[in-house]
Design a protein around this nucleic acid. Structure first.
Length: 213
DNA sequence: CTAGTGATTCCCT
DNA sequence: GGGAATCACTAGC
């Protein structure tokens, strides 16, 4: 029995709430990316909450910079960052303007346009791996810093939009420690995912890397 | 399945 | 200078 999927946009006030409310509520929502090939639609299955200035794991912890400025702006916009010299990851900004909370989109199921996503994800052995991990998700959807600051709640022609889809019932939502976050930021169970979903990324505890000689 | 490691560049200290 | 909200690949069990 599949719940009815609602293709209307999520309103901006959906994001103007505490990030720990928004993050689990994003599971099952639809992200639509318009590409030159055609639309790619992703059903969110795994996210992580970052609680702005209170959260040592957050990029916003030490205040606004050239990179993280969008996090301090209005809710419903996309924050994209570049990391590890190679990858992009995307977030949705939450809370009122001035509060730098965001939800990292970690994984999802591509429900439309998989043929377009495969062209950028040649190493994926099956479609479940197309967006299984935050950098894979961004790669599959052709998201990079050019989309930083995009309004995902805007009307009209936009490169990226979020739709209501079908929220995942709370008894199907799991939570645990965030991936890749070290130190005091690692204690919170602020990673949320859909129970038993094959597109959820494997958990990896943070491992400090040795310095290359 | 798990664990280890190189890739590659931007950003902030 | 050195770490980074990661991935792909390899070896070994």
């Amino acid at each position: 029995m599949i719940a009815t999927t609602d293709r209307t946009p999520l309103p901006r006030n959906f994001f103007d709430r505490p990030v720990l409310e928004v993050a689990p509520d994003l599971l099952g929502r639809l992200l639509v990316r318009t590409t030159p090939d055609g639309p790619i639609t992703l059903r969110l299955t795994e996210v992580e909450a970052y609680d702005g200035g209170n959260d040592p794991g957050s990029h916003a912890y030490r205040g606004p910079t050239a990179r993280n400025g969008v996090m301090f702006g209005p809710p419903g916009h996309v924050y994209v960052y570049f990391t590890y010299g190679m990858w992009h990851c995307m977030n949705l900004v939450c809370g009122p303007e001035g509060v730098a909370s965001a939800v990292l989109l970690r994984a999802g199921e591509i429900v439309e346009g998989a043929e377009y996503a495969r062209k950028r994800r040649l190493s994926a052995r099956d479609d479940r791996e197309l967006a299984k991990g935050p950098a894979r998700l961004a790669t599959a959807l052709d998201v990079d810093r050019a989309l930083d600051g995009t309004d995902a709640c805007a009307a009209g022609a936009t490169p990226l939009r979020i739709l209501k889809g079908a929220a995942v019932p709370s008894d199907q939502v799991r939570s645990g420690p965030r991936t890749g976050v070290s130190g005091d930021g690692a204690v919170h169970p602020w990673r949320y995912w859909v129970a038993d979903d094959p597109t959820v990324s494997p958990y990896r505890a943070h491992v400090p890397r040795r310095r290359r000689s």
